[in-house]
Simulated scan of single mutants.
Amino acid sequence: MLPAATPRIGITAVGSHLPARRITSQQLQDEITAHAKLALPERMLEKATGIRTRHFAADDEYASTLATAAARRALAARGLDPGDIDLLLFASATRDICEPATAHIVQSELGTRAHALDVSNACNSFLNGIDLARAMILAGRARRALVVTGETPSRAMRRDPADAAALRDAFAGYTFGDAGAAVIVEPVERGGILDTATVTASEHWQAGGIPGGGSRHPRGDEYSYFRGGGKELRGIFEQIGPAALAALAERTGLTWDDYARVLVHQVTAPYLERFVELTGAPADRLVLTVPELGNVASATIGIQLDRVKEQLKPGEKALMIGLGGGVSLMTMVWEAS
């Protein structure tokens, strides 16, 4: 927990945004199997993932579009103008373009003049962004930060697999949906972010991801699709997760009973059920989003926080648990003020 003399930095406003287009898992399955010329059982994708629907960005919507819409809602919730922000972090697994940073595109749309940069660490990007914003405020480098994410992982989904082998290789990507989220981070008189920690197992960086767009594979559509073993990633998190949560409990003295809400990254419904089984997390304190939204990457926890923030009373705590390819696990304890 924070030493008594440490200034308190908190999350004072939240916003989120979902693109209008909504499709069912069966509609997605029909599209995929039409290309692969496969006959799959009715609702197989939904039954395997627990995802009923998800939202897809329109052709003229981008990661910055979703982030900007969420940012405007967060600013409005706090009663702030864009000019009140002096640090803008675009923290996302998705970006509009390779260069410049997508933060500049969001900033241009909002009309801020803040220090702007990108933070990228797969599905942990948003939590990492909040942590970085807090650190920069504590260091005196910023007064008030806007942390945004815009996720369009549907663009990395292989929706035209040639055969059964290609479908299996791309299957983890069929959990994806698109969304945006944003938070205001600034000093608070009480509560705030009480604890953060990360566990990183980078030896597993090849377990899943999008290989294209960098210096290894700068061109070629074949590298632009998400590839990865969902079971492998799940196994890695099962190895590192319990120890990370045990260390959190020992460090803070907090147990599951001390959290009013538990916000955890959600990939599929079976994975979430396994998380509850493995950790003993109280299922009734989770904020279930995966059945209606799918895996919205780093926007997951932001959307969950947006849905519960106003329900939390001053002094009540939420535990955020982020899981990201690479591989990393992050915990953040936040107390409502």
Rank of each mutant, 00 (worst) to 15 (best):
A4E: 13
A4I: 12
P7T: 09
I9M: 11
G10L: 06
I11N: 00
V14A: 14
H17T: 03
L18E: 06
I23H: 14
T24M: 08
Q26W: 08
Q27E: 15
T33G: 00
A34L: 07
A36W: 01
L40N: 02
P41W: 12
E42M: 10
M44R: 11
M44K: 11
L45A: 06
A48N: 10
T49M: 01
R52V: 00
R54Q: 05
R54H: 09
F56I: 15
A58M: 10
D59S: 14
D60E: 11
Y62Q: 14
S64I: 03
S64E: 04
T65G: 07
A67P: 00
A70Q: 05
A70D: 08
A71K: 04
R73C: 08
D81Y: 06
P82T: 01
I85F: 13
L87G: 05
A93P: 01
T94Q: 04
R95A: 15
E99M: 15
P100Y: 12
A101T: 13
T102C: 03
A103S: 12
Q107F: 02
R113P: 01
V119M: 07
C123D: 03
F126Y: 11
N128T: 12
N128V: 12
L132G: 06
A133M: 13
L138R: 10
L138F: 13
A139L: 09
R144T: 15
L146S: 07
V147Y: 06
V148F: 05
G150W: 12
T152W: 00
P153N: 08
R155Q: 10
R155L: 10
D160P: 02
D160H: 11
A164T: 11
A165K: 13
R168Y: 07
F171C: 03
F171N: 00
A172H: 04
G173A: 01
F176C: 07
D178S: 10
A179Y: 04
A181F: 06
A181Q: 07
I184P: 07
E189N: 12
R190G: 14
D195H: 15
A197V: 03
A197D: 15
A201W: 08
Q206S: 14
G208H: 04
G208A: 15
G209I: 02
G209P: 02
G213W: 08
S215G: 09
S215I: 12
E222T: 04
E222D: 12
Y223E: 00
Y223I: 02
F226E: 03
R227W: 01
G230K: 05
K231C: 03
I236A: 09
G241E: 14
A243E: 13
A244T: 10
T252H: 11
G253M: 05
T255I: 07
W256Q: 12
R261V: 03
A269E: 13
P270K: 10
P270M: 08
E273W: 04
R274P: 01
V276H: 01
E277Q: 14
L278W: 13
N295M: 07
L305Q: 12
K309G: 08
E310Q: 15
E316I: 01
M320L: 15
G325K: 02
G325E: 05
T331H: 12
M332C: 10
W334E: 10
W334C: 04
E335M: 13
A336M: 13
S337D: 13
